[in-house]
Design a protein around this nucleic acid. Structure first.
Lengths: 210, 210
DNA sequence: CGTCTTCGTTCATTATATTGGAAAAAAGTC
DNA sequence: GACTTTTTTCCAATATAATGAACGAAGACG
């Protein structure tokens, strides 16, 4: 969620990485996946149709393969290209965030109180927040990088949700999804404190296969 | 969220595609993104550092670029490799789900009551649910495809969250994130009704930049 | 131990990606 | 329309991806 400067540190970073890191990641990943299956380079070569040499080079981070070669490798592991190139789910263990853990109180001013419900150490593809808006309080956001969406649900109160030119009033129990790659806002238009749960989604849904 | 048979239709599809389709998709996408910005091949070439010739070939589906070249193009558009290779986000507009809309009441039995908070017509990369568990009620799930994670927050009550071999008790206001690609469960261990908000994440997080 | 097999790396060759400049096509201006 | 400019495509040259065969190391076996 990239709401305002107060949250700058939490925004997804759309900046890339040097190609070296990409091939480094790929190399490590292929090596790991292959080991996990107890396959030799020869076995993977046969299954994937990519030469042992190339696989060896990839694993030693000496290669910059074409998309087609990369896809063949992905398929050999029963994965899409996206799955191969992305991080494995981190060894995500059960991580608990306690109600009183101040680390996750992200913002508390006269406009809004926001508490992060998702761990700070996860990559920022999806974020989860509890948002409390006092009467008249608002959470306004600049557009975010392309494809970003939000889900919100109103647990208490009455809130206007705005996205691009659209807006709607949400009552308690109502939910909404909307684009967050355009200016957007949540405004408490009721008389009491509003309580919202907000999901920010930065990742794109996969193309079939990639 | 793919919890039980009652939700079988909601899982993400990981199937692949032939290389020709990959380069076809890429070609069309690059052409479209470039047009949308009103950039010439020369402009994109300058920004990306990939030759005009290569870009032209890519757009005409004549090229099988390396990962490094593809990444450079993605960056020129301010995207990660994953974003370039994946479908554009659907034309997500503001969509509201009302508290009393029965369409989104997903399950209501003696173990759990679940209401979907995200629209049913979105691709199933992230789903958002309200879950009510009566005392002793439980929501048990089989493992899900690799990389699936969940976030949960307890709005009321006391709940045990289990994932793989781990488990923790969550009190009101507590949150957790955990792997959902292993057997997992949410169990109401308190004396009253528990109210949870649950986020299911099917998409893989991008490698930084990919 | 010696011999054989498997495995990963090296190396030279082949195949193909990528480029820069020229040519052709398209667009813009008068 | 003629002319100029811009854009895209073509083409040959260069760079690099990808290969198959050889090599060296490690492991298995008698």
């Amino acid at each position: 969620m990239n709401e305002d400067e107060t949250m700058a540190g939490h925004s997804a970073d759309g900046a890339g990485q040097p190609p070296e890191t990409l091939t480094r990641h790929l190399g490590r990943r292929v090596r790991h996946l292959r080991s996990a299956r107890d396959w030799s380079l020869e076995t993977l070569a046969r299954i994937s149709g990519v030469s042992r040499s190339m696989l060896s080079q990839i694993e030693r981070e000496r290669a910059n393969p074409t998309l087609a070669v990369t896809l063949r490798i992905a398929r050999a592991f029963g994965m899409t290209l996206g799955e191969l190139l992305e991080s494995p789910g981190s060894a995500s263990r059960l991580v608990v965030i306690r109600a009183d853990d101040r680390t996750y109180h992200y913002r508390s001013d006269r406009n809004a109180r926001i508490r992060t419900l998702s761990p700070l150490n996860l990559e920022k593809d999806v974020e989860f927040y509890e948002v409390q808006l006092p009467p008249g309080g608002a959470l306004r956001s600049a557009p975010h990088f392309a494809g970003t969406r939000e889900f919100v649900t109103v647990q208490r109160g009455r809130v206007r949700v705005e996205s691009g030119g659209d807006s709607e009033i949400l009552h308690t129990g109502d939910s909404a999804s909307y684009r967050a790659d355009v200016p957007h806002a949540l405004v408490n238009v009721g008389h009491g404190q509003a309580l919202l749960f907000l999901v920010d989604i930065y990742c794109q849904s996969p193309v079939s296969g990639v």
